[in-house]
Design a protein around this nucleic acid. Structure first.
Length: 322
DNA sequence: AAAAAAGGCAACCGCGGTCAT
DNA sequence: AATGACCGCGGTTGCCTTTTT
C-alpha cells in the first residue's frame, strides 16, 4: 500500500502473471478487434482475459481507443484541425481529452503529441516558453490568422478546381468568378477590421458533436462544415446582399453563439500596441537578427510551415503592423 | 557512408475519480 | 461507510524513423 492507501499491486491473479508490454502484434490486434466486435468494449481487465490477451486492461483500452477503433482518423493534422487545436488549447490548456472531443477521429494522445512536437517546437525556435504570454500572443496574432489565410486559399483553390471542372466557362473566367462569389468570402480575414473572431473561432456544438463514437469520419473538416453551414442554415446569417459580403455588418450569430466562442473582435491596434510594449519587441528584434546569421533558428528544418512564420515576423518588423 | 542528433509517435505510468460490493 | 476494482486523463518514456553533421 502507498501513503494514500491504494494498493500498489493489482490483486487480480492474472496480473501477477507475466504480462506482455510494448508494441502490439498483428495477432493481438486481431484478438482484440474480434472480441470487441462480438462482445463490445468496456470492462477492460476481464475483456483482456476473455480475449486471450496477456495484457493489462489498460493496455487493451489504449490500443483500442488510440489505434484499432474504426473511426480513428489517420493522416496529417489538417490546417483546420490545427486551428481548432490552437484555439481550444488557448481556452482550456492541456485538457487533451476535452479538445479531442471537438476533433472527431482524433485521439487525445494524437493531439497531445501534436502539441508537444509541433507547437512546442515553434516555442523553442522563438526561444520562449510555450506557456508564456509572448508565445500565446504569437499564436493568437500570427499563427492563427495565418492558418485562416491558408485555409482560405486552399479552399479557394478547391473551389476553382470544382468550378473549372463542372462548368464550361474558361479558366480565367472561372477563377475570377470563384474569387468573388464563393463561400470562401466567409473565411476572409480582414486584418484592418480585425474581424476574425466573427468568421472563425466559432466552435459550434451543433456541428461538432462531442460524442463521435458512432459518427463516420468525414473527409471534410468540421470547421469547413461549419463555414459551409451558412448555406444550410441561412437563418443564422443575414444581411448578405448578392455576392457581396461585409464581415462586420453581415454576420449575425447571436442565437447560436456557443459557450466556447472565442472573441477576437477586441483585437485592435491599441491591443497590438500594448502587446508590443509589454514584450518590448525584443523577440521580434531577435528574430530579425537571427535571419541574417548563419545559425538562424529559421534555418532549422525550414518547411513551408516555418517559412510563413518568418515572413510574418519580417513583415511586422518592416511595417510595424500586420 | 556512417554516426549522431532530433523528431514523431505509440505505449506506459501514476493519479484521482467513480462504481460496485 | 469502507474497500477494492476499474476507468480515464495527463505526463512521461522509449523506440523507431528521419534528418543533420
Amino acid at each position: 500500500m502507498d501513503e494514500k492507501g491504494r494498493t500498489l499491486k493489482n490483486n487480480n491473479m492474472e496480473d501477477e502473471m507475466d504480462l506482455k508490454r510494448g508494441p502490439w502484434t498483428a495477432e493481438e490486434d486481431f484478438k482484440l478487434m474480434n472480441y470487441i466486435a462480438t462482445h463490445g468494449e468496456g470492462r477492460w481487465n476481464s475483456l483482456s482475459r476473455c480475449a486471450g490477451l496477456q495484457r493489462t486492461g489498460k493496455s487493451c483500452r489504449l490500443r483500442w481507443l488510440n489505434y484499432l477503433r474504426p473511426d480513428v482518423r489517420r493522416g496529417n493534422i489538417t490546417l483546420e484541425e490545427q486551428l481548432l487545436i490552437l484555439e481550444l488549447h488557448s481556452r482550456w490548456g492541456n485538457r487533451w481529452s476535452k479538445i479531442a472531443q471537438y476533433l472527431p477521429g482524433r485521439t487525445d494522445n494524437e493531439i497531445k503529441n501534436y502539441w508537444r512536437t509541433r507547437v512546442q517546437k515553434h516555442a523553442k525556435q522563438l526561444k520562449c516558453d510555450v506557456n508564456s504570454q509572448q508565445f500565446k500572443d504569437t499564436m493568437k496574432y500570427l499563427w492563427m490568422p495565418r492558418l485562416v489565410e491558408r485555409i482560405q486559399s486552399a479552399s479557394a483553390a478547391a473551389t476553382v478546381a470544382t468550378t473549372t471542372k463542372t462548368t464550361t466557362t474558361t479558366g480565367s473566367a472561372a477563377t475570377s468568378s470563384s474569387n468573388t462569389t464563393s463561400n470562401n468570402q466567409f473565411m476572409t480575414y480582414d486584418y484592418n477590421n480585425n474581424s476574425m473572431g466573427q468568421q472563425f473561432g466559432v466552435v459550434n456544438n451543433d456541428y461538432i458533436t462531442p460524442d463521435n463514437s458512432n459518427v463516420a469520419v468525414s473527409p471534410m473538416s468540421d470547421l469547413t462544415e461549419y463555414y459551409s453551414a451558412q448555406n444550410t442554415y441561412p437563418e443564422y446569417y443575414s444581411g448578405q446582399v448578392g455576392n457581396n459580403y461585409y464581415p462586420d455588418q453581415d454576420l449575425v450569430v447571436p442565437q447560436i453563439l456557443p459557450d466556447n466562442y472565442l472573441d477576437y473582435s477586441g483585437l485592435l491596434d491599441e491591443d497590438l500596441a500594448v502587446m508590443q510594449e509589454q514584450s518590448n519587441l525584443n523577440w521580434f528584434e531577435d528574430i530579425n537578427g537571427a535571419t541574417s546569421s548563419s545559425d538562424s533558428l529559421w534555418n532549422i528544418g525550414e518547411s513551408d510551415e516555418d517559412l510563413w512564420f518568418l515572413q510574418d515576423q519580417q513583415q511586422f518588423n518592416n511595417n510595424g503592423n500586420f
